[in-house]
Design a protein around this nucleic acid. Sequence first.
DNA 1: ACAAATAAGTAAAGCGCTTACCCTTTGTTC
DNA 2: GAACAAAGGGTAAGCGCTTTACTTATTTGT
Lengths: 349, 349
Amino acid sequence: MEGKGLSKGFEHIMRPTIYDVAERAGVSIATVSKVLNNTGNISDRTKKKVIKVMQELGYHPNSLAAALTGKKTFTIGVLVPDIANPFFAEVSRALENYARETGYAIILCSTDYQLEREQYYLDLLMKKQVDGIIIATEPKDLNAFQTLQSRDIPFLMFSIDHLALSSHVVTTDDIRGGYLAGRYLLDKGHRRLAIIAELNRPSGRLRLEGFRRALSDHGIELDQRFIINSISKIEDAKIASQKILHLPERPTAVFATTDLIAVVFMNEARKTNVSVPEDISVIGFDNTIHAEIADPGLTTIAQPIDELARYAIYKLLESIENPQIPSHRIMLTPSLIERESVKDLNGHC
Amino acid sequence: MEGKGLSKGFEHIMRPTIYDVAERAGVSIATVSKVLNNTGNISDRTKKKVIKVMQELGYHPNSLAAALTGKKTFTIGVLVPDIANPFFAEVSRALENYARETGYAIILCSTDYQLEREQYYLDLLMKKQVDGIIIATEPKDLNAFQTLQSRDIPFLMFSIDHLALSSHVVTTDDIRGGYLAGRYLLDKGHRRLAIIAELNRPSGRLRLEGFRRALSDHGIELDQRFIINSISKIEDAKIASQKILHLPERPTAVFATTDLIAVVFMNEARKTNVSVPEDISVIGFDNTIHAEIADPGLTTIAQPIDELARYAIYKLLESIENPQIPSHRIMLTPSLIERESVKDLNGHC
DNA sequence: ACAAATAAGTAAAGCGCTTACCCTTTGTTC
DNA sequence: GAACAAAGGGTAAGCGCTTTACTTATTTGT
């Protein structure tokens, strides 16, 4: 036993180990381990004594060593494209919260939309032996994911989907979201509708699809010229907004597939002396802080972030416990948050 | 050597270890370790062979095991109060970015302003043997930090400071920031100035202090009634804004100590038919996306987030390498981002 | 051509913990 | 009070890697 514990005279620099606790408590390391994990049969008296010593020594078990034997690190990796994007910031927050509740920590990886970083991080997470991975970046390189599959690392696609991958998926029903937006505008009496969509992203296209269906269910075909493409960045959104504002026959309502685009549109409208919602109505998507802070408040489709996160953690942990479970895809329904950016045209007929 | 590697017939479930690589490459594990870390003397031929085998096996070294011997985990913990707050989201992004560049991963912990979570996370991070910790939450419980000190875990306070703690500190010079805001408004000819400040936070009070000094340097005393307290939340900010808007003698300019407050103020002003910047000028602090997206664009004091993050990582790694280095406090100067929310009164004299 | 120097590898001892598996005490039952 | 079962605790073998100390193969100088 001698020689395993604290080197004498170096107490201040060596962190105490299980040997130190054992020695000082006059028990074996097995006993200490058992009180640590509440396993085996240990008398109350011994337990108390050991715990007391741990506190005296300021002992914190080394979870690395534990993981090396126990096989679990209680860490999960989360891959997002951009943590500074309010949507992903909210997502991270929610994921982190549920992870904590179940005793897991999160390694956050922001890929900045770069494929190479995606690879780098996936590699890193594997090296760090995370117990599972949540992926919220659009998969560019299927290879990397196939590696995950083949190495039996549980993972889950969050808020995105890929047909080539048979993994767990937790996502918002974007089609339904788009439908919801369309339906709402129609209900409010709007007939000439435009959309600014992120056509380069699957979710943007799905939202468009839902929107289109809402209209066609109502006997209206979405005019091709009223579909404007834009990525969710301020400059791009400005350009797209101006296109809409200068359309020969201006629509009475616009559906923007992200709140950011919607807010930028509202600003551009104001600059062009077009008032929201008096002259033109706007509806967004995501219900980020932008929607809440905007003036007038932005009516928007809310992704059920908290629910998504809860399911994601739940499903992931489930498949960590039992990798055999066949993969599910869970699609949660978004909901409409009504604020003041859509005018009710019905009173005016 | 036999018996250490892959259990036959279980190749698909056991991840390959250094033993498997060694066996298959016909070398010892020491050799494999050396090519892995590029240490020692290994011939090119052997190196190539080993690398080839690693690829064939899809071998990823277990960094836990490495950390258990090598003493470093290449992981740092980051404690923020709320990852969904745009400022901290940006901070996390920047920190993560610099950490990645230096080969470190980040465990992100969002305390949600709760003391108990702070403790929980600090404990977790110690268990996970992080190499260092960056703390961006205001220290409520000095005890916990003292533990860090006593256990010789390098840590660094980010964008906050505490006089009782002698640790590394990287922060924005809030006083100078407030001064900058005041100076700018004065330069633009404003004399009747108000401030909405987070008086419950040190940074808010320092910004107020700087603002006050700018005025007094100019022979103006900041009127006590023109100092409004508010936390940085929409509802609170609305109330504070209304107080200002209904002041008997309305100020010509307002300094809000966060962008969120500033933007809410702009919205409230608009609702009250007070136009920004025509009737009242506004200047914010932080230069978050809110400022950029606002209409009119919000003139604001930018915290040098990227620089702060760079220094923070740099300093932390430095003290990981060499814990003897005496603690420094680095204060970076904020800068003014000019947009359209402040009117120049000078032309009108 | 041969010792000295250097290059290329290996064996083995941990790192701090978990976990079979084993050995003592006690208490229990008839 | 003999026989047996828990309860309480200890021993020791790893987990996958790094590293020191050491052996053996290959150059190099003269």
